[in-house]
């Protein structure tokens, strides 16, 4: 009960970012490092110029010290995003994106924009995708129902954003709808 109201209903975006930063990303190291043990596992050895997989938090850390280049994940490029955007705008359902794409894309674009070929274009594509998906989750709100709601392919950040009011809305609806048999009240 000591937690502020906002933290009781959902987690912070920055916490989601922290979780997403556990995922692995490929880097091209510029410094050599022996295989090193961390709490989450052992990573390395770093042998420039061989590629190596490390968690994003190590990658960003090294990147900010200019000790590596980050290789963008396979989905974080213009062709892929363009394709997803056109799918997003033509089909009514959410298109499949990596579950934590928003967090990963933001962190990588933030610290390693010089490792992307066209960072600004990627940013604007991501923004368009986000807006298209937001319109759909709003659509989902109109279909809110006291028993269930299915929005497949929603990403973690989007779920987190709509969680408080969707949950509260459904909670209120459950109390307003009185039908012991289940769902025959649907109009």
């Amino acid at each position: 009960m000591a937690l502020p109201q906002s933290l009781m209903v959902s987690v912070m975006p920055s916490e989601l970012e922290l979780i997403a930063c556990e995922q692995l990303v490929e880097i091209i190291p510029l410094v050599a490092m022996e295989k090193t043990a961390f709490i989450s596992g052992a990573y390395g050895p770093l042998r420039p110029p061989a590629r190596c997989k490390v968690p994003i938090w190590i990658a960003t850390n090294l990147k900010l010290k200019k000790k590596c280049h980050i290789v963008p994940p396979s989905w974080l490029n213009i062709e892929y995003l363009q394709d997803r955007l056109s799918r997003e705008t033509t089909y009514p359902e959410f298109s499949a994106m990596p579950f934590r794409f928003a967090e990963i894309a933001k962190v990588l674009l933030d610290v390693a924009s010089d490792d992307f070929q066209n960072a600004d274009k990627i940013r604007s594509l991501l923004k368009d995708i986000r807006e298209a998906r937001q319109a759909k989750s709003r659509e989902g709100l109109t279909k809110l129902d006291h028993s269930e709601l299915s929005l497949p392919n929603l990403s973690s950040m989007e779920i987190n954003e709509i969680r408080p009011h969707f949950v509260k809305g459904m909670e209120s609806l459950v109390k307003l709808v009185k039908d012991p048999e289940g769902r025959h009240m649907e109009s």
Binding site: S6, V9, S10, P13, P164, K168
Partner: peptide, 19 residues
């Protein structure tokens, strides 16, 4: 209030920078 707070927090996060 819930929706506003949540939208604000997410927007802040999108606009923040880690650098």
């Amino acid at each position: 209030n819930l929706a506003q707070e949540s939208a604000k927090r997410t927007k802040l996060w999108y606009e923040s920078s880690d650098r």
